[in-house]
Design a protein around this nucleic acid. Structure first.
Lengths: 353, 353
DNA sequence: CTGAAAGCGCTTACAG
DNA sequence: CTGAAAGCGCTTACAG
């Protein structure tokens, strides 16, 4: 290790060259008022010439700002641990950033209860927050919240699903349509000509929204574009318990003897795998989300493919986007689509996102 | 934004509580000598109690250490731009770290010339480097270098391929065997019973080493384990030009009329795609590496799947591992296998690694 | 073995 | 509009 030569560039050197004080240099760097045009020009010219970039560490150290970010996401339920992954990413980001004065306050809601979302929203608005990261699962309720946040001038970032036309800083999450296309491509390569294909949407009315439909649209679009002749059937199951799924699925399969491939449009694919365990014919199953239940099904080969969209990274990038914005370190893109990962029995072990 | 309450913990506060100077606190924190056992204990107790973690920024700022890391990787050739991706990751890491005093000196070698590797090695040893990131493409030559580095007490990290039993800090790259298994799984799901499968190794003698063989081993292992009956043939092509590939491939395919799936064990899969363009039968192609030539083949559907192992991230993590080690911020695992990503026409667009 | 002082490269009141 | 001084939380000589 060597020590740096300290006569290098820095506010001090710039001040010397411009014949001003370092305070003035600081004012120019941050576009603060109280500097004559002439001085500003002179200093800026030198900054240009030296290609000066302020030392972020020193800056952060001297400012000792603290920001508290509110995080509003569903709580991990007994049904799925999906939301534990974004949480890991959030925690990781905060661990890296706490030395820069970033902290987080968590607010969880229940995916089965709009009320819990509204309650959490009120807590968020009452808290002293400088930014909010949220998963806007309920559209109307989310709009209520983001409207207030916008009024209060509190920046926010969406993860996992988007609410277009909002004043959000960023959306970080999947491109649902495209992920449906990817599922279609994989299936089209595996299916035989005579195979019928089922699209299975499992969802209570609460959730049966744009989400699953967008995936279905992408899926069907792919088959259309490629003129693939397989019959594609849709099965909507609006109860999520094993019994209901089993009943409706059995009925549907009984009436479609050629069905050999099932595309389940959300993480409940493991429920399908389970109720299909005693099905006479071997079916090909593909579904969504890197959650423990699904991984176990990959292991026992009852599910062939899982599509995952880096839940951990969504949380991580969400916090990072807020941090950079709050500290004036640059803004992320408005829309950030995650890579669409294909997970199987042979590669889930190294998947860390 | 709020300002932090500055009466919080810090060396100053610890010094006050322990009735010593902050210099002594610093000595204890970093286990420097010149502190009596008694004082050390007293200070450590307080550090414990306050759960004190030194402020990394302030520490880095005060130390103003500079490290220069040597990077030894193949140069991007006209044949493949593979190595431009790790380079992107390296550059990104250095951009983030230069504020912490990290810089990089690049040394490139030619994958077709062991000599160029040796020459670059000498330059590395002559340079004033605090760490080295290298892709040890040539085993003997790499061993020569790492031996000297170890003697000189310069830490090094391997990316892309590993040299076990070396004193490297870390290996960051693929698990070749497992990626072969993954290829086998995908193919086993797509192939019909009557299809013959070709494993195609394209490589000049220089490279025809453990690399491709490990992938082939993983591939065959999967088929064995699953008792899949397809015939698996191996074709070794030891010239990399289009003409040679075309000739040997045509010959092999002529003698195997049932061949319908080709697994190419490296990035040259695009060459195969090209020479197969006028092949009468539609073949399924799967190969390695997220490089432009291969992406184009995904687009025109002449390649079905590409396996990629996050080349960008390898470079990024390699630099990070060295940085953390050099600044005493913790060491990475000895072996870091990258996720094994499956890339197709429908998801390459969002793949950023 | 220990302390006091200067300094890292910035920012922030405060004074003029 | 501008400057001088103090401070962010550490580390580094230097003195004793």
């Amino acid at each position: 290790m060597k020590e740096s030569n300290s006569n290098s560039t820095g506010v001090k050197e710039i001040a010397r060259l411009a014949n001003v004080s370092i305070g003035t240099v600081d004012r120019v760097i941050h576009n603060r008022k109280g500097v004559s045009d002439e001085t500003r020009k002179k200093v800026n010219a030198i900054i240009e010439e030296l290609n000066f970039r302020p030392n972020k560490m020193a800056s952060l150290l001297a400012r000792r700002d603290q920001v508290n970010i509110g995080v509003l996401i569903p709580k991990t339920s007994s049904e799925t641990n999906y939301w534990s992954y974004p949480l890991v990413g959030i925690t990781q980001a905060v661990d890296e950033l706490k030395q820069f004065g970033v902290s987080v306050t968590h607010f969880f809601y229940d995916l089965d209860s709009k009320n819990s979302f509204t309650t959490a929203s009120e807590q968020i608005l009452a808290a002293d927050l400088q930014g909010v990261l949220l998963a806007p699962s309920f559209i109307e309720e989310s709009l209520m919240l983001t409207k207030k946040l916008t009024e209060a001038n509190i920046p926010f970032v969406f993860i996992n699903s988007d609410l277009p036309r909002q004043e959000s800083l960023s959306y970080i999450g999947p491109d649902l349509f495209q992920s449906g296309r990817l599922a279609a491509q994989i299936i089209s390569m595996m299916a035989r000509e005579a195979d019928d294909i089922f699209i299975v949407n499992i969802s209570t009315e609460l959730e049966l929204d744009h989400h699953l439909l967008r995936k279905e649209q992408g899926f069907r679009k792919y088959f259309e574009e490629h003129n693939i002749a397989n019959t594609i059937l849709t099965l909507n199951i609006n109860h999520t318990d094993n019994q209901s799924v089993k009943k409706q699925l059995s009925k549907a399969l009984a009436s479609a003897p050629n069905a050999r491939v099932l595309f389940v449009t959300n993480s409940r694919v493991n429920v399908v795998a389970r109720v299909l365990a005693d099905h006479p014919q071997k079916l090909i199953l593909i579904g969504y989300d890197f959650i423990e239940e699904n991984i176990r099904c990959l292991e026992n080969e009852s599910i062939s493919f899982i599509i995952s969209q880096r839940p951990k990274e969504q949380g991580y990038q969400g916090i990072m986007a807020l941090y950079k914005h709050l500290f004036g370190l640059g803004d992320a893109e408005r829309t950030n689509y995650m890579p669409i990962d294909i997970i199987t029995k042979e590669n889930f072990h190294y998947y860390k996102n």
